[in-house]
């Protein structure tokens, strides 16, 4: 339960500056909150509401629509097994079943030690590499049940330092230096770009 920390408020304001209207930054800011705490805390949603100047209810309305936003703590590793058609054809459901047995949880559940949360997810765009899954949204391809066991063992023993904490989306962010910016303005303050007018034929 926490608001965004000072460093993230700075980052939040930079993100907000990328959009013509503040509310457009809502989803990226929810990701930022989830990156900070591993889930989207109520206080963080209230803080985001202040930053983008909408009501907390509007933030909750958006947050609750999207599958990636978790409003309660989840395991250290979120394991999302795809069972959609391409994966189903090549053993995705069997892989999920094996994951349930191995971890002792159903999709949506978290292991008692707080290590793993399991999800049964829809297509994650790796269909030629079925069956596949994601760990904290990082892809693993063509997994046998043995591969799954090895993955779980590696995660437990800390061998997968390449997989960041849940909530970390990209490890690189876009930064637009002030002197390189074309100029993002509120729609009311924006007109036809000067370069366009000068480059079009007189009568079009």
């Amino acid at each position: 339960m926490s608001r965004l920390n000072a460093a993230n408020v700075t980052l939040a304001n930079e993100i907000i500056s990328h959009y013509p209207k503040k509310k457009s930054a809502l989803i990226p800011l929810l990701h930022l909150a989830q990156e900070q705490d591993g889930y989207v805390a109520d206080d963080a949603m209230e803080h985001i509401a202040e930053l983008v100047e909408v009501t907390p209810a509007e933030v909750l309305g958006t947050c609750s629509f999207y599958e990636m936003f978790k409003r309660h703590p989840v395991g250290t590793y979120m394991i999302n097994v795809c069972t959609n058609i391409s994966c189903q054809l090549l053993g995705g459901e069997e892989l999920l079943h094996h994951a349930e047995q191995t971890l002792g949880i159903r999709p949506g559940g978290t292991t008692d030690d707080g290590m793993f949360t399991l999800e049964d997810v829809e297509c994650i765009a790796a269909c030629t590499e079925a069956p596949c899954l994601q760990v904290n949204y990082r892809h693993e391809y063509r997994l046998s049940t043995d591969d799954f066991d090895r993955l779980v063992a590696d995660l437990r023993s800390g061998k997968r330092s390449d997989i960041p904490a849940h909530g970390t989306l990209g490890t690189v962010r876009q930064h637009i230096p002030a002197d390189r910016r074309a100029g993002i303005k509120h729609p009311d303050d924006e007109g036809t770009p000067a370069w366009f007018a000068s480059r079009q034929p007189a009568e079009s």
Binding site: I27, F65, E67, Q174
Partner: peptide, 17 residues
């Protein structure tokens, strides 16, 4: 090095087909 100025912003989705 022209007069043309254009911003591209990367935006993040959050899981909704």
């Amino acid at each position: 090095d022209t007069d043309v100025s254009i911003d591209i912003v990367l935006h993040w989705g959050a899981g909704a087909y």
